[in-house]
Simulated assay, not measured.
Amino acid sequence: MRKLIHPLTLMLLLTVFLTPALRVRGGNPGTAQVVAVDEEYDRYRKRGDDLFKEGKYLEARRQYQNCLEVPGFENDTYAKEQIQECTTGLTLRKQADDAIRQGKGAEALKLMNQLLNLNPDDLITKGQFADYYEREGNQFFNQKQYVAARESYTKALNYTNTRQETLRLQIQTIDSISRPSKQVGLKVVTGLVAVGAGAYALLLRNDYNTKLSALNQISQTADPTGSGTIDTPDAYRQYNEAYRAAEAAQQKNGLFKACVGVAAVATVAELYLLLHKPKPKTTALQWKPSSQSWGLAIGYTF
């Protein structure tokens, strides 16, 4: 005869198979909370969390609402809190989009910052930041405000991983435009030489004229009749000193002529560089920022 299953054993088996799976939340066995695990709830919650990180608040909210529809989780605190966060995110995004359409840049940036404070992983908002700063950079570039354009492109780099190459290319374009050419350096050098040589020549000429004038004045005082005779030793000493000073200044006449020549040559070179501007190098492919949207406009020259 077969033995019947003992009633106690039967109850134990039913308890194992019919009771929902349990998990323990908390690290202290004495105070741990026992929470029912439901695969459907966990699936909805994971989908909601993933969508929330991407900034897809409408889709994420639907998943959290699904969590509340799972039996036993109608009052789940986490799902309710996330639904509220999603609602706040949707409101802020709509306000930010409206501000951008109305051209209220400062207000849009403020609202987008609030979105990132709500959800630092918000990929959509980061993309909006990148779009905003790149459009701003394109506008500055077309207005030839290259410093401001470079700053905007650099800000855009902080918010995107997919357009790094494009933005860096735009920054390199600005750097190549802003970099002074060799001819600009030559213009500066020739200008400095012309000014320096001319100024020194003028200084030499003024020094000679001043000392010659002083010699003439002393001559008239020491020998007013023009007889060629100076009566007093003191007057002779003054005349002799003035004569030597004028003679020393006259001996620099060669240096004066050299300075005048250098200044003249440098001036001619400066005029030549100003009148003969270098032709810009053109390539078949031309890259320039698009003024209305992010990215580059590509042109081909035949």
Rank of each mutant, 00 (worst) to 15 (best):
C259R: 00
T267H: 00
Q217E: 15
T225K: 13
Q217K: 15
V188Q: 11
E270Y: 11
T190L: 06
G261A: 13
G226R: 06
R237M: 09
D207P: 01
A199L: 13
A246E: 02
D231R: 15
K252D: 12
A258V: 15
R205P: 04
R244H: 09
G185R: 08
L273H: 00
A269K: 03
T221I: 14
K211V: 04
A269T: 08
R205C: 00
P224L: 06
P224D: 02
S181W: 03
V268F: 13
T232Y: 06
Y272A: 15
K277R: 15
R205M: 05
V268S: 08
N206H: 08
Y272N: 02
A263K: 01
E241L: 13
L212Q: 12
Q220W: 01
Y208S: 05
P224S: 05
F256T: 09
E270T: 15
N253D: 13
A194R: 06
T221G: 04
G198E: 02
A235W: 02
A258P: 03
G185S: 10
G254Q: 10
G261L: 13
K279N: 10
T267G: 14
A248I: 07
A245C: 02
Q238H: 09
A242Q: 01
N206G: 03
Y272R: 09
A222G: 04
I230T: 03
I230G: 06
A269V: 14
G228Q: 07
A263Q: 01
C259G: 15
Y272M: 11
V188D: 08
Q217R: 15
A248H: 05
G261K: 04
A235M: 10
V262M: 10
N216H: 08
V184W: 11
Q217F: 05
L271D: 03
A197T: 10
L273A: 06
A242D: 00
L186I: 08
Y200L: 10
L273T: 04
D223G: 08
P224T: 00
T210W: 01
K279Q: 12
A258K: 09
G198V: 06
G228T: 01
T210M: 07
G198A: 05
Q217N: 13
G261P: 00
S227R: 05
A266F: 07
K252F: 06
T190Q: 07
